[in-house]
């Protein structure tokens, strides 16, 4: 028996939690504070967008949320597991199994086909090739790229590569999806489709955190938070802050 669905009306489980997270580069007078005491929860089924100018700490926040970087203060939890205490090997395993990333530069491997690129994280997880291939097909289909399975990255347009990179992030039921400017330089129609895919993934139960500087894509989110000089200015709370 699988466990029953949660009662309607109960708050969805928090998938990633940042509590008073800070990230400092360097020490003393020359220290640079990329993030200063940022707290943010993203629950299952929720799409949250982080907006802010370049240099505001957006990518740092995403890297900390996914365990690619460690905070200098505060705590990060993924699926209730505090990342700070994890040995490197466990952290790597948690990242592979629970977290899907879409990076700004897509990092597709040029010598692998689309399907092989998407399969790779699953094979690293020890999933057998036949099953990994099947999962890759399903993920490519979800992003409308099933016809690209046998193409190499250089044989695809920018928008097609973007889709494949997203399929790679989706493969294998990851519950936390992190996307850093996932729309890159694609035109607005493809950009909207990409956000539509991420939106659909959130509605299927994933927690999705998207960093973007483009308002039209942030608008797909349930919640938009503004990052300024390493601090969050919550859009909902912005008008409530005391004037003093």
């Amino acid at each position: 028996m699988t466990s029953p669905d949660p009662e309607p009306g109960t708050p969805a489980a928090v998938v990633v939690r940042l509590a008073e997270v800070g990230r400092r580069h360097g020490d003393g007078a020359g220290a640079v504070h990329a993030l200063k005491g940022v707290s943010l929860d993203v629950a299952a089924g929720e799409l949250v967008a982080v907006m802010g100018p370049s240099g505001s700490g957006k990518s740092t926040l995403l890297n900390l949320a996914g365990g690619l970087d460690r905070p200098t203060s505060g705590d990060v939890e993924v699926e209730g597991v505090a990342l700070a205490g994890l040995p490197a090997a466990d952290l790597a395993a948690l990242r592979r199994r629970n977290v899907g990333y879409v990076f700004q530069d897509l990092n597709l491997i040029p010598s692998l086909t689309a399907a092989e690129n998407v399969m790779l994280p699953r094979e690293l997880d020890g999933v057998r090739t036949a099953r990994a291939r099947e999962e890759a097909r399903a993920a490519l289909e979800e992003v409308g790229a099933d016809d690209l399975a046998d193409r190499f990255p250089e044989e695809m347009s920018g928008g097609q590569r973007q889709r494949v990179a997203i399929a790679r992030a989706l493969v294998g039921e990851r519950r936390l999806l992190l996307a850093d400017e996932p729309t890159g330089a694609v035109d607005t129609l493809v950009g909207d489709e990409i956000l539509g895919i991420l939106r659909g993934r959130a509605e299927a139960g994933a927690a999705v955190l998207v960093v973007t500087h483009e308002p039209r894509y942030a608008a797909w989110a349930d919640r938009v938070v503004f990052l300024k000089d390493g601090r969050l200015v919550d859009s909902a709370a912005a008008g409530l802050v005391s004037a003093r």
Partner: peptide
């Protein structure tokens, strides 16, 4: 603060659209 309040409000409009 005037600017940020407007940004949040316009963003909510964008979300609704």
């Amino acid at each position: 603060r005037v600017v940020q309040a407007q940004r949040s409000a316009t963003m909510r409009t964008l979300q609704e659209l």
